[in-house]
Computed example of a mutant assay.
Amino acid sequence: MKKTSTQTKEQLEALALQGLCYADDNVGEPFSIKEVSERLGMSYSYFYHTFAEVIGEPFWHYVKRHRLELAAGLLRHSGYNINEISEMCGYATTSALSKAFKQHFRESPIQFRKIQVLPNEKRTLDIAVTITHSGSDTPLSSFFHVERCEKVTVPDTILYYSLISRGQNPVAEMVAKMTHFVGLFHKMQTLYDIPNSRIITGTLDSVPVTDYEKLSMYAGIAIPANDLKMIIQIEGRYPYLLKKRIQGGSYLRLPLPMDWATAGIPMYDFISRNCKEGIFKMSGNHFFISLSLSNYCEIFIPTLRKHY
């Protein structure tokens, strides 16, 4: 595939985002740039330059950074050991992860796990508070208690999503665009009558460690992975949507009488505090907010059964 004058900025962005989506969905698997470009039906050179131009960094730089940041998130919030985290993030050995991790973060995985407050963590939360006008010191924080959580089992799901914000101010973009995207996914639910689906929002990234300006926030519709008929229909009708597998298993479900934007900061404080105190440990970075009514949402936190 060659770049032509007929390809719009939106088309080039869509190609790059397909590559980003593939890297995220296969974070623990070995792959090469050539394999990704061929899968997307384009030449190595074309994909390489398009991705760097649109995303702002070379593809393999993104892949390495994303894997290491997810590893850092797992070190922060999960109960996995470093060997398990290495496998989950695409590193063949613990020593390979440790070497790359120290080069990137200037701390070993063991040392990193002991850090109480990360620089990016504080900065991201401070920015988000000013945008959403929420915080853990508000009366709303009284809703964020483990006693209010229900232990549920969530099936493996396929998420069809759009990245609703990337760039200099992702949370502000998210606030501005969310109503539009949620409306689109509600129409999908109505059109196809998908009773077991959820409209959800979250981030592809590890919030405590990813630079605020590089966060990728999404909204999408999650469908049970065993609903093959519906999956075929969605992929045939909406080929432009990005796709992500979300691991099922043990989750904590926390119902909240507030909108997603208000819930965001107290949610993160709740997760971080309970993981640090060992009340529960996460099985991955894929926590999300399920959206239904304008003044009601549900937080879903993947947990390790042995820790909760």
Rank of each mutant, 00 (worst) to 15 (best):
S108L: 11
V146F: 15
T6W: 12
L15D: 02
H286P: 01
R305P: 08
I164F: 08
Y22M: 04
D269C: 07
L75R: 04
R237T: 13
E13S: 10
P109D: 03
P58K: 03
M88F: 10
R123T: 15
I194E: 06
I199K: 01
K3R: 15
N295F: 01
E13R: 02
A176L: 05
G56L: 05
E121Q: 15
Q111L: 13
L15V: 09
F101R: 03
Q11G: 09
S294K: 13
I301Y: 04
I246S: 05
T179G: 07
R148E: 14
R65A: 07
I85N: 05
D193R: 07
T93R: 13
K229S: 15
E84L: 02
G236P: 07
T130C: 06
Y238C: 05
L184I: 11
I55Y: 07
L15T: 10
E35D: 03
I301R: 05
Q247M: 08
A71S: 11
R253A: 14
Y62R: 07
Y22R: 04
Q233R: 10
S283K: 12
L242G: 01
H66M: 07
K187G: 09
A100Y: 01
G73D: 10
Y296L: 11
R123G: 01
L252Y: 14
H180S: 10
M88D: 04
Y44S: 04
F112N: 10
S165K: 01
S216N: 15
E147F: 03
I33W: 00
Y296P: 07
G284D: 15
Y268M: 08
G167P: 13
N169A: 11
S290M: 09
A261Y: 08
Y80H: 12
E53P: 00
M174K: 14
G19I: 08
F101Q: 09
Y218N: 04
G264Q: 08
Y160I: 07
P302E: 06
S294D: 09
Y212F: 14
Y212I: 11
M42S: 14
N83Y: 05
I246F: 02
I279C: 06
Q168P: 08
I231Q: 12
A16Y: 08
V209A: 02
V182W: 03
Q18D: 04
R123K: 14
S45H: 04
S250Y: 03
L184R: 10
R123N: 08
I85T: 05
G278L: 10
D205Q: 09
Q189P: 00
A176D: 15
S95P: 05
R113C: 05
S290C: 10
F288T: 10
I271C: 09
D156M: 00
V171K: 03
N83K: 14
